[in-house]
Design a protein around this nucleic acid. Structure first.
Length: 924
RNA sequence: GGGCCCAUAGCUCAGUGGGAGAGUGCCUCCUUUGCAAGGAGGAUGCCCUGGGUUCGAAUCCCAGUGGGUCCA
């Protein structure tokens, strides 16, 4: 780290009379105005010094503190921007949730490809850190949901010129520290008590010097100066062991924890009481938690102490409780009974806030991705409510937070929560029954429930081991939950966890070629153009042709490539596929038109028209689905085609037939309105400001300008080709819906000619069915139902008749051979009929006290042997012997067996041998 | 994106290659008529769909559909 030490020698520190000191406890270097100071001030080197002794002049609520921060920076030339969604996977695919304000600008802004929405800027960004979930409520300071207040400045070195989307320096380290100092001062903090600790930051391939801002034992902010990137040849080796070098861009990345600043201003025992006091008191009352003055005092003292302990995970908390109890002079159990309900309530409040953020930003509970995280949090919250005895419905609790956070889609949020709670209830009920019967089984055997079963219950049925233990205890079965239970579950999953790193090889052949001019955006209706062949590359099969400009649409955004031809005066080549790499469009052809030639390009018009219809129709269907199902509906994927297209939508429920009809109706109304479909290329930040994040249904494009497609009121960022007016779509027909994952519904639809064909295909099927039944199409459902009922009745009748026939046969006298086998007699007969009848007959004969050996030679040779009670002949063995004679096998219980073989010709011979076989087996 | 589990009577489920079952509910009768009453009898099944293996599939294999669950 010493290499970076110079980075911290700031003019600002010098001017203000700061000294650099080494902490006497941990050895960290820090800057302070107080020359006599010895420790860095951060726990465990120091204690919380603000509980019951607020560090700021006035008390602030969460909302007031946020406003104070943002307006402070606004007054100092920062532009305030709206926060981004907590679902970071909506603009980047490397993470699921927003965990810091800088996530908003990664990777496109930090890399310099796209300009920031403002520079410098300030924001209060809601974040969710799932990794803290176990600590919430217990440590007094951990929250899963929080707002990271921040100010950012994006700088680029002068020497880089215009290579990046922003140029020059806005401000750097001195101004950043100065702003922080000034902010603390403006809130009335005692700045001589503030320490700035040197703490280099490394993460995500970037690094740089960073400063932790500590006041009265609490870390209030981290000031990161991101200016290095990982580089094997880099000059500096940092704490992660990798080498780094300086970048052309350097970025001020600060993080001020809104909750901590609020807490500091109030000095409450825990952060939770400072940030949502109303909810805490509501929950306490609802759960019936009340304390005597004596107990209240004890709780307060305990909170005081636990706040000062250095506890960063739950194991520490449990261990610390003993210490705590000793210091407070009470028993550990007594302390636990008092504190645990409070801890649960703190966690419930925090989890509800997390859920409000997640669901409010359009995350739908699911078995995959962010949806799974939402489901986990929701179920955990529900369990906490049940444990502590909060009986208010969960949707109401989440709504309290959603209301406070100002979400407008509160009804949808409540609906989602209710649906999800119901699903959880069903899972628990199912699981409960399962555990019960399993427990009874093992209790009867007198064995404990094995670990395998526990893992199976958790992994496949979502039942926690503690729940199993609870139920098993009621039934009287033993359960032994191994300490490493969850790692056993994990083992079950990584059969070969080695991720295949698909290192995409950059094709360097195209580097020197200019980007192809895209004519398909100029006039989307044209399909013919002229161009110059810049280069031709030979492939394994065929060629890649690069032109100076093209009308051919390369595959992208779920729209397949155009096909068509390129012609010179001498030759015409077929274009079978079109791809784009680094802005260079590659036309895959069967032959080469020749480098340097002028070509006439012709796009396959029919195909292109269908693709355009489907693409515009996709926008229309999404729009209709949002009208019908709700604003939370979002595209999770799409694929356009010529005959049909499909879109995957995030939705928390199944799409039923009525929904489909309504979506279809609204979509076709839009088609009939025949409104214009327009495109524009606005500045991306203006577009975002006007239309919000919902623009990006199909991913986020890079660049300063983005292409927007307007269809009626619907606006989406889109790079595809579209028809000119909605009427050109012709018609939209939804062909099917299916649930592709939990929380993701796939709609398959057809547009234009394909819609007509799809409808006709369905009608054909109906007409054919009508013809078979000889009724009119309208009568098909009723007739089919009747036929089905009648068919079932026939089955029952046949069964009855078979039995009657069998009894009649057994009554005898139809010339069957009757032979003596020891003390009993046997009937040996061949009846060419199906096995059911054979079986019934054999049973009937056996009822009369006679052994039945029946054979049938309909398709293959079949035997049925029935033996009356108390006769010492094993039917299974008899059948085995007989079946072997016809080249097959057979078996069954001793009193009734069946078998057979393929050799029908040998059937009669086998039956002739049957009496001998019977006698042999009886003797044996 | 990946793994695992499940689909049998109205409901809950058992049945692992050979005659489709239990509990509960339903219908009828009897006994009682007081709170989940007792007894006797009865009806109820495309064993999810399609293919394959086999003399024979609810059962084994493959695919699909529907549902559940865990992980990244």
């Amino acid at each position: 780290m010493s290499e970076l030490a110079d980075e911290y020698r700031l003019e600002y520190f010098e001017e203000e009379g700061f000294v650099r000191t080494e902490c006497s406890e941990c050895g960290a270097h820090f800057w302070t105005r107080d020359e006599s100071r010895e420790t860095c001030g951060e726990p465990p080197c120091a204690e919380y010094d603000f509980i019951d002794n607020p560090g700021f002049e006035a008390e602030y609520s969460l909302e007031e503190m946020r406003e104070a921060f943002l307006s402070f920076f606004e007054e100092r030339d920062h532009e305030r921007i709206d926060p981004y969604p907590v679902a970071a996977n909506r603009w980047r695919d490397d993470v699921l949730l927003t965990q810091a304000s800088i996530y908003d600008f990664q990777p496109l802004v930090t890399s310099g490809e796209t300009p920031p929405p403002a520079n410098p800027l300030t924001v209060s960004q809601p974040c969710i850190r799932m990794q803290d979930i176990d600590n919430v409520g217990k440590t007094g300071r951990h929250t899963m949901a929080f707002e990271m207040m921040a100010h950012h400045a994006f700088n680029a070195r002068e020497a880089a010129g215009n290579r990046y989307a922003y140029q020059g320096e806005v401000y750097w380290k001195d101004r950043t520290v100065e702003l922080c100092d000034e902010l603390l001062d403006s809130l009335g903090a005692d700045v001589t008590d503030v320490t700035y600790i040197e703490d280099p930051w490394v993460g995500g391939g970037n690094a740089g010097p960073a400063i932790e801002v500590i006041y009265r034992g609490l870390e209030l902010a981290t000031l990161v100066f991101m200016c290095m990137e990982q580089d094997p040849d880099g000059e500096y080796e940092l704490k992660d062991g990798n080498r780094y070098s300086y970048m052309d861009t350097y970025i001020v990345d600060t993080g001020y924890g809104l909750e901590r600043w609020t807490w500091m201003s109030q000095g409450t025992p825990t952060v939770y009481e400072a940030i949502y006091p109303e909810m805490i008191s509501f929950l306490k009352e609802n759960a019936g938690i009340s304390h005597t003055d004596e107990e209240a005092a004890l709780v307060n003292r305990a909170a005081h102490l636990s706040g000062q302990l250095d506890i960063d995970d739950v194991d520490d908390v449990e261990a610390a409780r003993d210490d705590l109890a000793a210091q407070l002079d009470v028993s550990t159990d007594e302390l636990r009974t008092l504190l645990e309900p409070l801890e649960d309530i703190y966690a419930i409040a925090d989890h509800c806030r997390t859920l409000a953020y997640m669901l409010g930003d359009g995350i739908v509970p699911s078995n995959v991705g962010t949806g799974y995280l939402a489901r986990m949090v929701l179920r955990r919250t529900k369990r906490l409510c049940d444990t502590v005895g909060v009986d208010a419905p969960l949707d109401e609790l989440v709504d309290m937070q959603a209301d406070r956070l100002g979400y407008e889609n509160r009804d949808t949020i409540r609906d989602i929560v209710r649906t999800e709670v119901e699903k959880y209830r069903e899972t628990l009920e199912r699981g409960g029954r399962r555990v019960e019967s399993l427990s009874e089984e093992y209790a009867a055997k007198g064995e404990p429930i094995p670990t395998d079963e526990l893992i199976e219950l958790y992994d496949s049925h979502g039942i926690q081991p503690d729940m199993v233990a609870e139920i098993a205890d009621d039934v009287g079965a033993d359960v032994d939950v191994p300490d490493d239970f969850y790692s056993l579950v994990a083992q079950r999953h990584d059969s070969s966890g080695a991720l295949e790193s698909t290192t995409e090889e950059e094709d360097e052949r195209f580097e020197d070629l200019p980007k192809t001019e895209k004519l398909y955006y100029d006039d989307q209706q044209r399909t013919q153009f002229e161009a110059v062949v810049l280069d031709v590359f030979e492939r394994d099969e065929g060629y890649d042709v690069v032109l100076d400009q093209t009308m051919f649409y390369p595959e992208g955004g779920g729209q397949p490539a155009d096909t068509g031809t390129l012609s010179t005066d001498d030759v015409t080549v077929d274009v079978t596929d079109v791809q784009i790499e680094d802005g260079v469009v590659l036309h895959r052809t069967d032959d080469t038109p020749g480098k340097g030639e002028f070509v006439n390009g012709q796009v396959d018009t029919g195909r292109r028209r269908q693709l355009m219809r489907h693409h515009t129709a996709t926008h229309v269907v999404i729009h209709s689905a949002r009208e019908v199902l709700g604003e939370h509906v979002r595209q999770a994927g799409a694929q356009k085609g010529v005959d049909s297209s499909r879109i995957d939508l995030r939705h928390y429920d199944r799409i039923d037939r009525d929904d489909v009809k309504e979506i279809e109706r609204i979509a076709n109304e839009l088609v009939m309105d025949n409104t214009a479909v327009t495109q524009e290329w606005p500045d991306r930040h203006e577009a975002e400001a006007e239309h919000g994040f919902d623009l990006y249904q199909g991913g986020i494009p890079p660049g300063e300008q983005i292409r927007l497609i307007h269809v009626a009121e619907d606006v989406q960022a889109c790079g595809g080709t579209h028809v000119a007016r909605t009427g050109d779509i012709g018609a939209i027909k939804i062909r099917s819906t299916e649930r592709v994952q939990d929380g993701v519904e796939r709609i398959t639809f057809a547009a234009g000619e394909a819609a007509l064909e799809a409808t006709q295909a369905t009608e054909d099927a109906l007409y054919e069915a009508a013809e078979v039944l000889d009724v009119s199409p309208a009568d098909v459902p009723e007739t089919a139902a009747r036929f089905f009922e009648e068919w079932k009745d026939r089955g029952k009748q046949i069964e009855e008749l078979t039995e009657q026939l069998a009894e009649a046969r057994a009554g005898g006298g139809d010339g069957a051979d009757e032979v003596d086998v020891g003390e009993t007699t046997a009937v040996v007969d061949r009846i060419d009929t199906d096995v059911d009848e054979l079986r019934a007959t054999a049973n009937a004969i056996a009822e009369e006290g006679t052994i039945a050996v029946l054979g049938s030679g309909e398709d293959s040779a079949q035997f049925v042997v029935a033996v009356p009670d108390g006769v010492g002949v094993n039917a299974g063995e008899v059948v085995g012997e007989l079946a072997a004679k016809v080249g097959g096998g057979g078996g069954g219980p001793p009193d009734f067996a069946q078998g057979g073989g393929p050799d029908v010709d040998a059937l009669d011979e086998a039956l002739e041998d049957a009496p001998d076989v019977l006698r042999q087996i009886q003797d044996a």
